[in-house]
């Protein structure tokens, strides 16, 4: 707990809140712009349309945002050459875990606030149907899990390379692949870590080419996809942590 508290202390004046606010602003503008272009017929899908689009926006916005957060937290150690001081007081494993826990908490708060914000938007817009609180809760949990998988990858890169360009380029590529992967066949999407934002979506769209009618429907993420997601996370965690622990300062 002491190390986790210190991670927050170290991130003072690192504009972490600003990064999170920017993520929320981009998502809000994006979704807002989307809904202003919908007609009454489309708006009847209300909550489903919102969650479907949030998954899409997540796939674009979150990979780069997660990369930025991980980089902000790890860069300060490289910049100040603090590894050789810290590792005389704590083990590299403890350091890695504290940074991961910091990322987990920041992302959890960000995504909970994000969900609360869009719930409020939905209520304000007067979306029809009962308030899908449980589905929003699950959506938040799934977004957080995918983000943590990506965070483990980004933290590994940010810790490994002092120059944060590598990690940030990976984040940019992730944002691009995240949205592009939605056009891939499902089997291929499973091979793209950032594609899980779309793969884990609770709402799917069915477009009938004959009637040209679009239909949205709720669905539970397949267990195999959840297992694969956890597997990706485990691989990034184990590899990132091992490389960090083995590195001599």
């Amino acid at each position: 707990m002491n190390l986790l508290r210190l991670e927050f202390y170290k991130c003072r004046r690192r504009k972490i809140v600003l990064v999170c606010a920017a993520v929320l602003a981009v998502e809000l503008i994006w979704i807002g712009a989307f809904f202003t272009r919908q007609d009454a017929e489309d708006m009847k899908w209300g909550w489903m349309l919102l969650l479907y689009n949030l998954s899409t926006v997540d796939a674009i916005v979150l990979p780069l945002s997660v990369a930025t957060l991980a980089s902000r937290n790890c860069e300060l150690e490289h910049k100040g050459g603090t590894w050789k001081l810290l590792e005389t007081m704590v083990t590299p494993v403890q350091l890695y875990d504290a940074k991961l826990a910091w990322g987990a908490l920041v992302l959890a708060v960000l995504l909970i606030v994000r969900s609360g914000l869009f719930l409020a938007v939905g209520i304000a817009e007067g979306f029809s149907g009962p308030l899908p609180l449980a589905r929003f809760g699950l959506f938040t949990l799934l977004s957080w899990t995918v983000s943590m998988m990506v965070y483990a990858l980004q933290q590994g890169l940010s810790l490994r390379f002092a120059n944060q360009a590598a990690a940030l380029v990976c984040g940019i590529a992730g944002s691009f692949l995240g949205i592009l992967s939605m056009l891939f066949p499902p089997a291929l999407v499973r091979c793209v870590p950032w594609g899980y934002y779309g793969l884990m979506s609770l709402v799917f769209m069915d477009w009938n080419p004959v009637t040209r009618v679009t239909r949205f429907y709720w669905r539970w993420p397949p267990v195999t996809d959840v297992v694969l997601l956890l597997l990706w996370a485990a691989v990034f965690l184990i590899v990132g942590r091992t490389l960090f622990v083995r590195k001599e300062v």
């Binding site: 170290k10 003072r12 004046r13 690192r14 100040g80 050459g81 603090t82 001081l85 810290l86």
Partner: peptide
């Protein structure tokens, strides 16, 4: 206590 090569510090603090 140690000071190895260059001082370790957080410049923004």
């Amino acid at each position: 206590g140690s000071l190895i090569e260059s001082p370790s510090y957080y410049g923004h603090l």
